[in-house]
C-alpha cells in the first residue's frame, strides 16, 4: 500500500505555494493593523497596546469630514449606479434579443476598459470647465464621476441574477391576472432583490475605495477618506495613518462580507 492514495486532483507543490500565497496576502495587512494599535506614535517602536490612534483619528475634524464625504459620495453613487444598472439590465437581458444589444453591453462596461488615471484626468478637464461655468464646487462632481464608473460593477451581479431567472415566472404572473406593474413588484423585483443588493454593495465599496478619480475630480479643500489618507502619506508615516488605514480596511471588509453572505443565501 502506498502512503498516499492516488488522486488526479493532487499536483505536487500546489498546496505549499497556495499556503505561501495566503500568508503573503494577509501578513502585510495584519502587520499594518497590529502597528495601528501601538501606543507610541513611531511605527516599529512598540510602546504597548492601545486604541488611542483610532480615537485620535476619529476625533480629528479633517478625518471626520473626509469620512462623511466618502460615505455621502459612496451611498449616492451606489444608489444612482445601481438604479441605472438595474434598468439597463432589465432592458437587455429579458425577452427577445434587442438590435444593438451588444453595443449597449460594450458601452455599459466602457468605464472598465479605460485606465483609471486616464479617466480621472479626462474627467478633471471636462469638470473643470463646468466648475468654472457654474461656480458650483460641491460634492456633486464626485457623485457623478463615481456613479459613472460604478455602473459596470453594479451591473454584473444584477445581470447574472436576471439571466438565471425563469421568464416563465413572469408569464405565469400575467396569466394569474397580474398587470405589468404588479408583476414587476410582486415577482420580478423580489427575485431580483439579492442581485440589486449585491450590486449596490459592490458599487458602494468601489466608490469608497476609489482614490485616483477622486484625487483629480475633487475641488480644492474637499477630501474623501482615501484622498485624505493619500495626502497624509506625504508626511511621515505614523501610527495614526495606520489606524486610518485600518478603519478604511474595516469598512470595506464589512460591506464585502455582508454582500458575500447575501449572495450566498438561496432565494
Amino acid at each position: 500500500m502506498s502512503k498516499r492514495k492516488f488522486s488526479v486532483r493532487h499536483v505536487p507543490g500546489a498546496a505549499p505555494i497556495a499556503i505561501v500565497t495566503f500568508v503573503a496576502l494577509y501578513a502585510p495587512v495584519l502587520i499594518l493593523i497590529a502597528n495601528a494599535f501601538n501606543a507610541g506614535p513611531v511605527i516599529g517602536r512598540w510602546e504597548g497596546f492601545s486604541g488611542r490612534w483610532f480615537v485620535a483619528a476619529i476625533g480629528n475634524d479633517a478625518f471626520r469630514n473626509a469620512a462623511l464625504n466618502s460615505l455621502i459620495v459612496a451611498a449616492l453613487a451606489a444608489l444612482i449606479s445601481t438604479s441605472l444598472a438595474t434598468m439597463a439590465a432589465l432592458a437587455i437581458t429579458r425577452g427577445r434579443r434587442l438590435r444593438g444589444e451588444g453595443g449597449i453591453f460594450v458601452v455599459l462596461n466602457q468605464p472598465l476598459l479605460v485606465p483609471e488615471i486616464v479617466l480621472a484626468i479626462a474627467l478633471m478637464i471636462v469638470l473643470a470647465q463646468i466648475k468654472q461655468a457654474t461656480g458650483y464646487h460641491g460634492l456633486g462632481y464626485l457623485i457623478v464621476a463615481h456613479s459613472t464608473f460604478c455602473i459596470p460593477f453594479a451591473f454584473m451581479p444584477i445581470r447574472a441574477r436576471l439571466e438565471g431567472m425563469d421568464l416563465t415566472l413572469e408569464t405565469a404572473a400575467m396569466d394569474l391576472y397580474a398587470g405589468r406593474f404588479y408583476t414587476f413588484r410582486r415577482v420580478t423585483l423580489p427575485l431580483l432583490a439579492p442581485g440589486i443588493l449585491a450590486g449596490f454593495m459592490l458599487a458602494f465599496v468601489v466608490s469608497l475605495d476609489n482614490v485616483v478619480v477622486s484625487s483629480f475630480v475633487k475641488s480644492p479643500g474637499q477630501e474623501t477618506l482615501p484622498t485624505y489618507l493619500m495626502g497624509e502619506l506625504r508626511r511621515n508615516l505614523s501610527s495614526e495613518i495606520y489606524a486610518i488605514s485600518a478603519l478604511l480596511l474595516f469598512a470595506s471588509v464589512t460591506v464585502v462580507a455582508a454582500s458575500w453572505l447575501i449572495t450566498r443565501r438561496k432565494p
Binding site: 425563469d166 416563465t168 415566472l169 408569464t171 405565469a172 404572473a173 415577482v187 423580489p190 427575485l191 432565494p267
Partner: peptide
C-alpha cells in the same frame, strides 16, 4: 405550466 413556474420566493 410545464415547468410549473411556481414563484420561488
Amino acid at each position: 405550466f410545464q415547468s410549473y413556474a411556481l414563484f420561488p420566493h
